[in-house]
Design a protein around this nucleic acid. Structure first.
Length: 356
DNA sequence: AACCCGGGGAG
DNA sequence: CTCCCAGGGTT
């Protein structure tokens, strides 16, 4: 029996029953695939249902306000995915007459759709023979064939793409692609793979040569840097001052409390002498520290945040252009009004406890 | 080719 | 802690 046949037999028996597997609608498949980019199935599934309910067809998605889309996306991370989805939906309306493209070469033109996602859309919707190459596929193929090239090197990516395309079952590319990804997720796991009970025990190179926990090889990335954020909760009656983040940094265009960033950790007596602080607040500004320092870990940076309540908004000397007051009778209201920065969500008690 | 973009969970 | 996740875009 061939690799593909064994894989698909395994899948028929042990594959997952996932909500987006019952459709051949390229739009629904696209929705699920963008959500699942670098995102675990368990984390993405509730978002998938929310988006299908809110935007059952692509024209609804295209008509939506970007802020509504981002609010639905809130908490998922990699927010450019949501922005690109909106652009893509509008492109489908304008350039594809509202019919979501199911061919690889057309789908890949959409922003946010790369090689993986285009292959997924084309194979799942109309069985176009395009192999998907995601983290699961890298792992399964690296172990099965003993490929030692780094999966994140340019050469490695090319090699794996070629091998994946060779192994693809050209008669059932959709099922095969689902099968190899499920196999990677459930059986050939990154840590503690279930080798003792594996259909490829006999032929798997890594298993035969004791390289299961060496493969796949991945080049090390940069060490993450530390950043120190100091947030100011400036209240004026029932309103709270919010600030819009800029481009070229994390959380592009999302909202947060007004903030000062320092290169090193800094406590309040010192922070009051800091140039940025002096620029915006009176010397007499009364500040009440709230909670403890919060550590927020991103894949490439560690953010340490402290929060201060500014009791008297008159102590605000001047505002940056992108600092705006927003009504905040309730947190829900604020969320409805503007996007909420994840810190705010996680520290709702910091504000709601102080609400009038 | 290098860098940037999030949040969550497993071990 | 470290690593990984149904990756993609920009420089």
């Amino acid at each position: 029996m061939s690799f593909a046949e064994k894989l698909m037999n395994w899948y028929r028996d042990k594959g997952r029953d996932l909500p987006w597997r019952t459709t051949h609608d390229a739009y629904i498949i696209w929705l699920s695939e963008i959500i699942l980019q670098q995102t675990r199935v368990e984390q993405g599934t509730p978002y998938f249902h929310r988006f299908v309910d809110a935007f059952p067809i692509v024209t609804k998605f295209a008509e939506a306000d970007e802020e509504d889309i981002l609010r639905l996306w809130q908490g998922l991370g990699y927010y450019s995915r949501a922005r690109n989805m909106h652009k893509a939906a509008k492109m489908v309306v304008e350039e594809f007459q509202g019919v979501f493209p199911n061919a690889y070469e057309e789908a890949i033109r959409l922003p946010g759709v790369g090689e993986y996602t285009a292959a997924a859309i084309a194979s799942f919707s109309v069985n176009e023979p395009r192999a998907v190459v995601d983290g699961n596929v890298y792992r399964v193929l690296a172990r099965y064939f003993g490929i030692k090239e780094p999966i994140n090197s340019t050469e490695g990516k090319k090699t794996f793409a070629e091998v994946a395309q060779e192994m693809l079952d050209k008669d059932s590319p959709g099922i095969y692609n689902q099968a190899i990804m499920d196999f990677g997720a459930l059986q050939c796991k990154p840590k503690n793979p279930l080798c003792e009970d594996c259909i490829f025990r006999v032929e798997c190179f890594a298993f035969r040569n004791g390289l299961v926990d060496v493969l796949p090889v991945k080049l090390k990335g940069k060490v993450s840097r530390n950043r120190y954020f100091h947030y100011f909760i400036v209240k004026e009656n029932d309103r709270i001052l919010m600030s819009k983040r800029g481009e070229r940094d994390v959380w592009t265009n999302l909202y947060e409390f007004p903030m000062i960033e320092t290169a090193e950790d800094m406590l309040m007596p010192d922070l009051m002498t800091y140039t940025d602080f002096v620029q915006y607040f009176e010397e007499s500004t009364v500040l009440e520290a709230v909670g403890r320092q919060v550590k927020h870990i991103l894949s490439h940076q560690n953010i340490y945040a402290r929060f201060y309540i500014v009791e008297d908004s008159r102590s605000l000397k001047k505002k940056k252009k992108d600092w705006n007051y927003h009504y905040c009778e309730k947190i829900d209201k604020l969320a409805k009004h503007k996007l909420i920065f994840s810190f705010l969500e996680k520290n709702v008690h910091l504000i709601s406890a102080k609400q009038p």
